[in-house]
Design a protein around this nucleic acid. Structure first.
Lengths: 196, 196
DNA sequence: TATACGAGACGGACCGTCTCGTCTTACCTG
DNA sequence: CAGGTAAGACGAGACGGTCCGTCTCGTATA
């Protein structure tokens, strides 16, 4: 009862076409948004046959995920600096998160991704593994270091890391309010009060 | 250059058709999901002409919002109890939030709404005003009461309220992990440590 | 030599607009 | 406080258009 479809040979895949498809996808999301993004339009823009897209991706959401990962240059490793001053380091990493979310170049693409995720748990898992988890893990690593230095108490690091990112994404995803450096500072201050 | 469209008369609107449309929408989201939800299918299921839908709603997202608000019985006012014990009261209100998000009946409909919001800021504002803000305001009110009782310190209540809801929605929207009563308890404990 | 490729034809699903004839309702008249 | 009427909201569905996902074609490539 397993999948009966003949799989294509990745070794023979055209890198040129792949790049063209992902680039066209990123451009088109910026122009027409995710809802009106059409596979046909991607193929036309990329100068590619539709079948070439359907051969390598199961659906629109998967193309969008890969396009975004290429855009942000994922899989190159996230690292939170360790200056010894936790507040400084957190301000740096959360600040760069906020900058990305507020940057129009990334905003539409990221929102497209969140849209695609909502009715595709597999895609959500892929995004989690390849983008969100690296950030969370890097942040937890920095918090663990602070724990060992006796700067913060012995709390659940998953809860602590999500308490930092959660309110930012909450504000941004549900459009509750603007996310600014100032908001980040207030958030960090509150969390450090809980952690020390 | 203003809108040149003749507006229909709300006084003559058929309440029967309205209910049928919103009910059909809720049912169909549960069956096929938001992405595959078709206006034509809603009309057919509701026993209604397509024009009747297009006459009263500008797009699919708006229908979905109204359907959800009807489902949860919004606009009936949110109130956080004030037992004197802040932890108990927060556990109650955040617990009911988690229950909703985890309930399959509400989950698909709410995720549909989040999807619709991402490329429609106006719709997002409507959701914010009619659903999210009432919860946040009720929570802030309870926190303010605790402030006056000298139980928590004098912090920005917007930041405090969002620090409570943010991580829950973050986990749920980005499918980072399961949201449970246990997680809520850990979250409340951490926030209370920051607030006292 | 096998197969990934660009191109595009194909039937089908829905889109959003429109035009019917019917039914409902707000309002006017007596 | 009827009862009659005209405006318009209604259900139904035809319409051209877009895009879907599958399927052939030769051609190019590894």
């Amino acid at each position: 009862m397993s999948r009966n479809r003949k799989l294509p040979d990745p070794a023979r895949r055209s890198e040129r076409s792949k790049q063209a498809i992902l680039t066209a996808t990123t451009d088109l999301i910026g122009e027409v948004g995710y809802a009106k993004l059409a596979i046909e339009a991607i193929a036309a823009r990329a100068g590619v046959g539709k079948q070439t897209i359907y051969r390598w991706w199961p659906d629109k959401g998967s193309v969008v995920l890969d396009a975004y990962l290429m855009l942000v240059g994922a899989d190159q490793g996230i690292d939170v600096p360790d200056s010894g001053n936790l507040e400084t380091d957190l301000r740096l990493v959360l600040g760069s998160t906020v900058d990305s979310l507020a940057d129009p170049v990334f905003e539409r693409r990221y929102r497209a991704l969140v849209t695609a995720i909502q009715d595709d748990p597999e895609l959500a898992a892929a995004l989690l593994d390849r983008l969100l988890k690296p950030w969370l893990e890097a942040t937890k690593k920095r918090l663990r270091s602070a724990q060992h230095a006796g700067q913060i108490r012995n709390v659940d690091l998953d809860v602590a890391a999500e308490a930092l990112y959660g309110p930012i994404y909450y504000r941004w995803l549900l459009r509750i309010g603007p996310i600014s450096r100032q908001y980040v500072d207030a958030l960090i201050a509150m969390n450090l009060r809980a952690l020390t």
